[in-house]
């Protein structure tokens, strides 16, 4: 493995500095959300009927979609959601923010589990750094979603999305090497990204929309990195998984396009608005 650990550490440090700058930007919409939430509560403006109707419509829309995770018992769970309007006493924006938080909880747990796998220490150093850094970014996302949800009068979500959690549990015995781990990580990151893309188009509160929109692209970047690593691993080019890349000319031509498979981000995997809401 040709990797400069010191350089990577410096890059990660610089990345954290940039991240801190970005956090300052995110605090602004969060502060605005707090103000809006206070105003809504002060004027008793929360409309439970609107929330119920929205959840119903959102779930019906999702019923048209077919996700890759659908084969693991999710179909039945989704069908169950159509039968009952969920959480008539919660605004839909809060439900979506809580569901987003529940996905983040699961992502944090999944990356934590990866770091504890027997072969984790033998993964390329840059991948180990990615796992650690990405876990940290998901923790920041969880805080942001929960801050947004509580600012609008909802509760913070500390539990994992119940449907996706079952999928991860079912996958755990098969995580015997980097390949299955990458498959699962890609699935989770794509699910997060697609959920946030869908929610950005559905949220009504402007600042909740800003927070969600500022996170969707980051999850998409996680997907890109994972897809690239997956391609290099499956092609036997482990030594090319490094920063900086040791020899770009050694990469196959097709590797140049694997990180961004779609011109438009899909929403097939988006979770139902209320799937991870606090019950």
């Amino acid at each position: 493995m040709t990797i400069d650990e010191q350089e990577l550490a410096e890059l990660t440090s610089r990345s954290r500095d940039v991240h801190n700058d970005a956090m300052r930007e995110t605090r602004e919409p969060l502060s605005e959300i707090v103000e809006v939430g206070r105003e809504h509560r002060a004027h008793d403006e929360i409309d439970p009927l609107a929330g119920r109707e929205f959840a119903k419509q959102r779930n019906l829309q999702l019923g048209k979609r077919v996700g890759l995770l659908g084969g693991v018992g999710i179909g039945a769970a989704l069908l169950g959601l159509f039968d009952q309007p969920a959480f008539a006493d919660k605004p839909s924006d809060i439900q979506m923010l809580q569901t987003s938080a529940s996905i983040e909880v699961l992502a944090i747990a999944a990356y934590t589990a990866v770091l504890g796998l027997p072969f984790a220490g033998s993964l390329p150093a840059v991948v180990q750094t990615f796992v650690t850094t990405t876990k940290d970014q998901h923790m920041q996302h969880l805080q942001a979603f929960n801050a947004a949800a509580t600012a609008l009068g909802g509760k913070a979500q500390s539990m994992a999305d119940p449907v996706l959690a079952k999928v991860v549990e079912a996958a755990k015995p098969g995580l015997t090497g980097p390949g299955p781990v990458l498959d699962l990580a890609i699935e989770l990151e794509n699910t997060a990204a697609e959920t946030y893309v869908a929610n950005t188009g559905a949220l009504e509160d402007e600042n909740a929309k800003k927070v969600t929109a500022s996170i969707m692209g980051v999850e998409a970047q996680h997907v890109s990195v994972l897809l690239a690593v997956q391609a290099l691993l499956s092609g036997g080019l482990v030594d090319q998984i490094a920063l900086p890349p040791p020899n770009l000319s050694a990469l196959p031509a097709a590797a140049g396009g694997v990180g961004f498979p779609n011109a438009f981000y899909k929403t097939d995997l988006a979770r139902a608005a209320d799937e991870g809401a606090v019950k």
Binding site: S15, V18, A22, Q140, I215, V218, H222
Partner: peptide, 8 residues
Amino acid sequence: YPVPNAFA
């Protein structure tokens, strides 16, 4: 680093 920010 390919994902430099936690928030866009």
